[in-house]
Amino acid sequence: MNVSEELVNQVLMIVGTGMIVVGALADLVASIGMLRFPNFFVRLHAATVGTIWGAFVPLLGAAFFAAGYSELGPYRWFVAGGAVVTAFLILLLGPVGSHALARASYKSRAAVPKPLIYDALSEKLKEGEEK
């Protein structure tokens, strides 16, 4: 193994470790937010923190770390590839899931968004009923 390759590995591992630690902290904050926030719609924002910084970032971090971690052998590309694909899938899945849940619970009144200072959607729905 030559020196430059080792350097690249070192950098990859430093970046990866940093992202993993950031992910851990973001997860903690997000879970605290989940507990503290008053209703479902506000908790969605905490969940977003948990999804992007809490899952997307550490997954990419794991991919970087694995790519630089030569002890894993040739299968480290398997880890890296899997982690990258998972990360981008989560980037697509997370918001769609949140949106679908939010829309469904708003429409069916399964969760009531209170407190709320302004509600453009209820006005629209009311208009629709009047029509």
């Binding site: 977003t48 992007i52 949106h99």
Partner: peptide, 25 residues
């Protein structure tokens, strides 16, 4: 819509393709 939802602080609750508007929490 996904960009809006993926930034914490805003979540798309409903989309109306007719009048081309999101309703964002």
């Amino acid at each position: 819509a996904n960009s809006i939802t993926n930034t914490p602080g805003t979540v798309v609750v409903e989309v109306d393709p007719g009048e081309k508007a999101f309703y964002v929490h």
